[in-house]
Amino acid sequence: MSAFLSYLISGLAIGCTFALVASGFVAIHRVTRVVNFAQGTFPVVAGLTVSSMLGRGLPHGVAELIGIVLAGVIGLVVGVIAIGKRGTPTLASLVITLGLGILAYAFEIIVWGDQPVSYSMLRGAVDIGGARVAWQYFLVIGATLVTFAALGLFFTRTYLGKALSACASNPYAARLAGINPIRMGLLAFALGGLLGGLAGVLITPLQPVAFDSDVLLATSGFAAAIFGGLNSPYAALVGGLLLGVLEAFVAGYINASYQTEVAMVLIIVVMIYQASRRSTVSEEVS
């Protein structure tokens, strides 16, 4: 029972970070139709940055903030390169993000080396049903829920958020209204960077991060994001939590080395299911 509970809670927490990465995929895809292959870079850079900042004696809070903002700036830069030129085909943008994600390895190794880093944020643990659960897990879950609530308010209550939704919903009509789709796309990339950065800042104390952690994070985030067809942040949250818990149980009860395979299998199952639900009629219409 106590093992079950601790797997569940740690799974939920890790799932939350997947959901944050996933919501970055969703924000960018909704507005630009680009699947951002560099999405895994944002949490890695944020985690590595926070680790260095703490090493230089910066206090908690400030270090994390710098890590998240830097990830947001990198998101913006990726956006400028991938979609900044008007008329860039979506597929070209996608390949550019893939290239930038790989290029980032070089920078990361030069700046931080190739060894995994970690740091502690919240110390201490709490006893739940006989299981010792670190406070950090609850911090991750709480921060994620607050972020998703804020995202929901941003997209449905603010004028800028509605303009982003309008670009996602009908880019032609948005242009007629004078909404610049490239600017909105860049905003989405910056937002994707911030969300990925937050995920990295939160997950690094739980799972050490190295330059090549982006593959696992991006794969898991993508698996969570396709739950809502890359278009619904809430479906991505559900997908992330499900994936996190599933991975934790597989790791706990079967073998920790199967974690990545769980995400891969999930991606394949969801995609086959979604493809089978698309009727011939809707294919012909679209």
Binding site: K162, S165, A166, S169, N170, Y172, A173, A174, L176
Partner: peptide
């Protein structure tokens, strides 16, 4: 032409 609204808003 074709209204071009934002259907989900």
């Amino acid at each position: 032409e074709g209204r071009q609204l934002f259907p989900d808003l």
